[in-house]
Design a protein around this nucleic acid. Structure first.
Lengths: 194, 194
DNA sequence: CTATATAACAAACAGTCGTTTGTTTTTCTA
DNA sequence: TAGAAAAACAAACGACTGTTTGTTATATAG
């Protein structure tokens, strides 16, 4: 067999394209970010981007996938270090929020760009998010809660509040992502204590 | 004094323009909605919209203001019917969520369009939102909570979860906006009971 | 009835959009 | 070092963008 595929060039600029795309998609949103914006940011001509991505939507999907992968990895790693169900959930919440607010732009794109903004790729984005949501559903399922507790609402309450924090969080604030996540969880946990 | 101002025409089409703008801004977002989209929806020519609004941004601000007014009115009315602090908050949460998920498009534009999407009007939008947030801050301040409770986190947790519900709520679901708001509040309240 | 403010049309403006095409430069492999 | 693949440039395509301008129809007040 002949080696038909060549190794990618060493100074690959694809990461840079993704980085700047993530930054712009997060800052301005998907629709308001033009391919020319991205091209300018990476110091290329607009057409050159189409060597790496067939369409603007594919560029977003790539950023989105990387964002989901990033959050998922962080949360999985955080969970693995704990054994107690409540501590697992707290670790997950902290990791989730730190991924959103500290990791950078990829993660924020995931919760800022709506699937409906990218009709042709919407189903793919929704599937990616659902897979992640399932992670939290399992954590909540493992909690020792009173039998009448609505675990779905519990998950939606926590995850919604965490995701919404992007709108009011700012870097120099009194609370870090870690303390925010912890104080949310404390408010929720005290409900279930004797 | 002479009457220089004339009464507006009876079949004023301004409400229709606002309605369709709200619908489109909610469905597609601000950037992805064109003036031609709106003009088509109200069966006008694009240029005719500029008789009513000087710019696209002004159209958004008008929708946004109406949205804030709508939510605020609903919540204020709901609060007024209650006396107990917890019941006031629950009534406010229910009204808030019903305004978002049942009232229509105006209210959703308020939490779906980010101020940063409209640079020239951003400050105005932020001010409108802050005024509304203050309403909830007062309700939380009135709650009989243990002294060590972080009331700011409490408010952000509740309001964030309520606002995020737009992303997963769908009309035919098992839970109505009212039951969602109530179950969120129950999860939060049980923490503070003896 | 007529004057006038209201509200729309009709048509275009310059600029930007995502994308395509053909060509050139750069880099790695054999 | 020659050849090929990778990665960029250069330039344009048609469609669409927010907006402006001049004109026309319509309703209402005097």
């Amino acid at each position: 067999m002949t080696q038909t595929l060549r190794a990618p060039r060493s100074d690959n600029r694809l990461p840079q394209i993704l980085d700047e795309s993530a930054r712009l998609f997060r800052e301005k949103g998907y629709a308001a970010t033009s391919m020319r914006d991205i091209a300018t940011a990476v110091d290329m001509l607009p057409g050159s981007l189409y060597y790496h991505f067939a369409a603007k939507e594919d560029l977003l999907v790539a950023v989105y996938e990387e964002g989901v992968r990033l959050i998922t990895d962080k949360v999985r790693a955080a969970i693995a270090r704990q054994t107690d169900p409540w501590q697992k959930l707290e670790a997950a919440a902290v990791a989730h929020l730190e991924a959103l607010l500290k990791t950078g732009d990829y993660a924020l794109v995931v919760i800022r760009v709506l699937p409906q903004d990218v009709p042709k790729a919407a189903a793919r984005l929704v599937a990616l998010r659902d897979g992640y949501d399932n992670l939290f559903a399992q954590l909540v399922a493992a909690l020792p809660l009173p039998p009448q507790t609505d675990r779905q609402s519990f998950r939606l309450l926590l995850l919604g509040a965490l995701n919404w924090s992007q709108h009011w969080y700012h870097d120099g604030g009194r609370h870090s992502p870690r303390t925010i996540a912890r104080s949310f969880l404390r408010l929720l946990r005290e409900a279930q204590l004797p």
